[in-house]
Design a protein around this nucleic acid. Structure first.
Lengths: 261, 261
DNA sequence: GCATATGGTTCAATAGTTGAACCAGTGCTT
DNA sequence: AAGCACTGGTTCAACTATTGAACCATATGC
């Protein structure tokens, strides 16, 4: 891997920590030498991507990403466009709704509207979503080109709960169902007692950029309710796509992506 | 310069462009070879820091910075803390108020509340603020340690308007006045007909992290008014500092980094 | 059809990166 | 107070990743 890649991986790893970390911890976490980690951190600091607390000497994410994010959001206001729809969906479904975005080879949560109910599913912003074990991941993958699906399923799939589906062939079955339905269903694959549905937001080329998902406690998610949630997420994803990419809809909704059986 | 530094500079340069750019343009802008620029872009793309439009082949800022920014903001909600004060100040002063943050060796605008008046000063989010020719820059520099001031004034200072002060000795004079007053005054140094005042928000160590500034048309900025703006800006900066660092900054009493033993 | 753009690729020469071993400081134990 | 076990930070010869001129393929304009 290139130096740049390693440095950005370090940044990525450091960002996943719950709190600020010291040099030794960061180096250990990334499997890098202390000297190397430090050189990266110094270089990242020069450009504002990390900053070091002068007192504790610990490192944290800097403000350069904030500046870049602002510029991107100003030009590509995905969140600004999507959030009203997420809010409306949370209102309509009375369940927790979240929005994810594919970035840096990972699908991560970028916005959450919590259900107002006392018994609800809680999702944290920033959470990474495994592609095989979440509704969002399945919805994303289902509309990816075959080589990306192959790549995603070629690695060993983690069994997160006793319900997690880890056999590639079975996951492919779920993807086919997802394409046929227009939304995915994840039955307790990421957390016991939680059922989710999700639908992708797709760029004009057809490739998904992220997903809308509803997560509900299993006691409130019978067959009929899940289908209702599915229809709602699919509608929300369509609405966001339309607003985000203008009048132009995803091209070749049925012909663009060919999946192998 | 290290490879990482060059790649981050490329990202920085690309972010300053008004629109998406092609490979050749980016390479030229950064003074890099086309092959090198491309390798950087590919690497940055792998990690989501840039993305390439599949149709136009042009590059734009990716979504990884958005994720990092979210994490930083969640942990260090500078903007969230500061914006209400900026809004209140805009209301009270009836002039355009903006907030800047020092990042990656530059001071850049991160929030603006425009005046409601027809005749007003317009400031864009993302604008970089020269340290010698803006109220924010002077307020920032004035409270920096001497070596940083020396470094900033050792480079040639750009004459932006006919009023811009470019003699290091005179700039030092302004800095001294700023420290004495608690806020800076910039008289048409960045744009003719505009007078600004600014005050720094300072970290517990004393180092400024950014500034609050009011910018007004010169016709509404007589001596008395400017002093009033200055007092307001200083008060806002103090209030933000207190809120930001106030209750919960101190040394981590409860949580320690876990170490493997 | 030629000229001149563009994005993208190659590979030998080279320049930047690496990491074990080092120093210095801090806080805990004895 | 000496010893220990951490910490962050630095050094420099060995080495490996980076560099960029020249290359290809394609697209647009005259």
């Amino acid at each position: 891997m290139s130096t740049i890649g390693k440095a950005l991986s370090l940044l990525d790893s450091a960002s996943r920590l719950d709190k600020e970390a010291g040099l030794t911890d960061i180096a250990r976490l990334c499997g890098l030498d202390k000297a190397t980690a430090r050189r990266f951190l110094v270089e990242l600091e020069k450009h504002g991507f990390v900053e070091q607390d002068p007192e504790t000497r610990k490192y944290r994410i800097g403000s350069a990403p904030v500046r870049l994010a602002r510029i991107r959001e100003a030009r590509y206001p995905f969140l600004r466009v999507a959030v009203p729809f997420i809010k409306a969906l949370a209102e309509a479904s009375t369940e927790t709704v979240h929005l994810s975005e594919f970035s840096g080879r990972r699908l991560s949560t970028i916005h959450v509207e919590d259900s107002r109910r006392a018994h609800r599913v809680n999702v944290e912003v920033g959470t990474l979503l495994p592609l095989h074990a979440t509704a969002s991941g399945l919805a994303y993958l289902a509309f990816c080109p075959p080589d990306e699906i192959d790549a995603a399923l070629s690695r060993p799939l983690e069994r997160i709960t006793e319900y997690t589906i880890v056999e590639p062939a079975m996951v492919r079955g779920l993807l086919d169902e997802t394409v046929a339905r227009g939304f995915s269903i994840n039955h307790q694959g990421i957390e016991a007692g939680v059922v989710s549905t999700a639908a992708p937001i797709r760029a004009p080329g057809g490739h998904p950029i992220g997903c809308v998902a509803i997560a509900a406690p299993i006691v409130r998610a019978d067959q009929a309710e899940v289908m209702k949630f599915g229809a709602q997420v699919a509608a929300a994803a369509r609405a966001i796509t339309e607003k985000y990419y203008g009048s132009e809809k995803p091209m070749g909704t049925s012909t663009q992506i060919r999946r192998t059986g």
